[in-house]
Nucleic acid binder design. Structure first.
Length: 620
RNA sequence: CGGGGUGUAGCGCAGUUUGGUAGCGCGCCUCGUUCGGGACGAGGAGGUCGAAGGUUCAAAUCCUUUCACCCCGACCA
């Protein structure tokens, strides 16, 4: 550090309260940034390769990584944004232990639900402990002993902390590790609606999450996810959009509606059972071919011309069968079937279904009538006429006889009046896919995208409070189970997702908000005292303006320094060398700019950088 | 948990079929020449060949056992 920098630091250290943040200045030679030309052989995902190559992370064990200085700085920036948004939304930070006694799971049985994914640790006395995967039990236990009156609620508490999950298969570097950094928040309420209710906090969290990821400079989608125990839109996932994402999401290009595959609704699709038969029912011997693909290939019938018939069993107190029918190339969505029939159900036990008379693997819609079941047909399967071709629909389906299928199935002829009875309904019961009509805009088609889940908020209801006996007295003196919400952000995963979303052939391209340093001062001749003095002065001025600055003071060849600069992805590069100095300036180049950049006069550098930083804010 | 694969220098790899005392590229150290997009020359350091046991005069190499890691699938509040 130069004397000027030291003096400035000393000055800011003297004041007890600062209203503006002074940026950091760091010399490359005094930190650890071990860049490499080659990525480890086992890395596949772009973020994994680049984070290792750029010296952000190093593998310690399967799914366990060191966060090196650059990574730690970026994680700090993500955490800072999260803290600001959480605090602004009325949540309060605390810290719980990473380890917890296994006894805490006694009431919720989550140790069983989690199974082998729960890291277990036995201490010297033989006590069973767990490394926490999340903290519902710990915080509920805390609240149980600290909150006894409705007057103390609502509350929303959060922490940023390392979490553990003994994944079967850790992969893709930071995207799915066994140890990861997470922000988890838990809110507590006496009611769902109105002031102080769960719904209110949930909406605040949804806004806070949207603000957080927007400020991080991420391109993301908010998608409706599987409903929680309360139902409705009780759960949202925040997905960073990128090709390499593990999760598939569907979006309506006109309304912004987005949902994951499980949850996505499909817009109106007309249906009509009427239409002439395409021929007499023709039974075909299809030995041991129970799958659509096998039968399709064998009978030379395309899967969209087949009916896929799934047998489900009612899973509440009442007994009963449900036969769900979709087109051969579609997938039955159990959740949607459940919503359509109005009672819980599950895939039928094969033995029981066979005993009841279903030829499992060779079932046709006719079985609903002959065996006695509620028939639910997806609109795309409920067609007597092929609309596109304007002629009767050709259907192949099971023969309700082991090892046989039939061709020329016709809804009217083969099902008769059963279709008009209360035991036959048509409803959206399949998974959505790209090209399906949007449920929110007539004429719009859903598009498919991929993403990495970085945030998830949901309404827990009273699952944990009931299980653990967290009851609080309300105004009338009654003791009620507290209603909870829970809100998570994968902090370390956000770091990796950002790299997945934003990189090029040369390396990482950080958004300004998450970059470990905003600017990199690349000094060409580090043994030239005058040049170094310029670098220190420029860095100091930038730091005063709030920029975090890294000075590349390594005595290395220009080529490798430029390559490293691109690799670690600092947004602004200032090159200090003879060429620009002769013109009284330095070279200014954004990571996203091609070429060598432009010469900017010394006195204009800070202004030029501020301009770039602000432009970056706005374009996100 | 099923299928496939890999463990040799910090990283990337060859050598294993056919046993003979360990090599290449990058990186690192020293010296010199270089110096605006991963320089060149000369010299040098660095390896219990994942571990244990066995066969053999001799094992990275053959045999047995074991451990670790990766990829695909299944799974994933």
């Amino acid at each position: 550090m130069t004397t000027t920098t030291q003096t400035r630091n000393a000055e800011s250290a003297r004041s007890t309260i600062t209203t503006r943040r002074r940026g950091d200045v760091q010399r490359w030679s005094l930190t650890l940034i071990p860049t490499t030309k080659e990525a480890p052989a086992d890395a596949e995902a772009p973020s994994h390769k680049l984070l290792v190559r750029a010296g952000f992370i190093r593998r310690v064990g399967a799914g366990i990584y060191d966060y090196l200085p650059l990574a730690w700085r970026t994680l700090g920036k993500i955490s800072d944004i999260i803290r600001q948004e959480m605090n602004a939304a009325g949540a309060c930070e605390m810290l719980m232990p990473a380890m917890e006694p296994l006894e805490l799971f006694a009431d919720t049985k989550r140790d069983i639900d989690y199974g082998d994914n729960l890291f277990r640790v036995t201490d010297r006395h033989g006590r069973a402990n767990a490394l926490a995967p999340t903290h519902e039990e710990v915080i509920t236990e805390l609240m149980k002993g600290s909150v006894a009156s409705y007057k103390q609620l609502p509350l929303n508490l959060y922490q940023i902390q390392t979490k553990f999950r003994d994944e079967f298969r850790p992969r893709s570097g930071l995207l799915r590790g066994r140890e990861f950094i997470m922000k988890d928040a838990y809110s507590f309420h006496m009611k769902l609606e109105g002031a102080g209710g769960l719904d209110e906090t949930y909406e605040k969290m949804r806004t806070a999450y949207t603000n957080t990821f927007t400020r991080c400079g991420l391109d993301f989608s908010v998608v409706e996810a599987e409903a929680g125990p309360i139902g409705g839109s009780a759960s949202h996932e925040f997905m960073v959009n990128c090709e390499t994402g593990e999760d598939i999401i569907l979006k309506c290009p006109e309304t912004g509606y987005a949902a994951n595959v499980e949850k996505c609704e499909i817009g109106h699709r007309p249906h009509d059972f009427s239409g002439d038969p395409t021929g007499d029912l023709e039974k075909v011997h299809t030995p041991k071919m129970a799958s659509i693909e096998d039968v399709s290939r064998f009978m030379k019938v395309k899967s969209p011309n087949m009916l896929k018939t799934i047998v489900l069993a009612r899973s509440d107190e009442q007994r009963g069968w449900v036969v769900a029918v979709v087109r051969g190339d579609h997938e039955v969505n159990e959740g949607k079937v459940k919503d359509a029939v109005g009672f819980p159900l599950a895939m039928a036990d094969e033995a029981e279904a066979k005993a009841a008379g279903f030829a499992i693997g060779f079932v046709s819609p006719r079985a609903a009538r002959s065996v006695g079941a509620l028939l639910v047909v997806d609109p795309d399967a409920a067609q007597g006429t092929d609309r596109d071709k304007g002629k009767p629909s050709f259907w192949a389906t099971g023969a309700d006889e082991v090892d046989h299928h039939v061709k020329h199935f016709n809804w009217r002829r083969d099902m008769g009046e059963f279709l008009d009875s209360d035991n036959a309904i048509v409803a959206d019961i399949r998974n959505a896919r790209a090209g399906d009509p949007s449920p929110r805009a007539v004429g719009a088609a859903l598009t498919e995208g991929r993403g990495v889940e970085v945030g998830h908020i949901f309404k827990l209801g009273t699952k944990y409070s009931r299980a653990m006996g967290f009851l609080v007295q309300d105004e009338s003196g009654d003791r009620n189970a507290v209603i909870m919400g829970c809100y998570g952000i994968g902090v370390s995963r956000t770091l990796a997702a950002c790299v997945e979303m934003s990189h090029d052939d040369n390396g990482i391209v950080w958004p300004m908000a998450l970059a470990p340093y905003h600017a990199l001062v690349t000094v060409m001749k580090v043994d030239n005292a005058e040049h170094m003095a310029h670098a220190d002065r420029i860095a100091g001025e930038l730091a005063d303006a709030g920029f975090d600055v890294l000075i590349d003071d390594r005595d290395d060849r220009p080529g490798s320094k430029f390559k490293d600069a691109d690799l670690i992805g600092i947004p602004i590069r200032l090159t200090l060398g003879d060429k620009a100095l002769e013109q009284g300036g330095v070279e200014f180049k954004l990571r996203t700019d091609p070429g060598k950049g432009e010469v900017v006069a010394m006195e204009s550098i800070v202004g030029r950088c501020l301009e770039a930083a602000n432009a970056a804010e706005h374009c996100r």
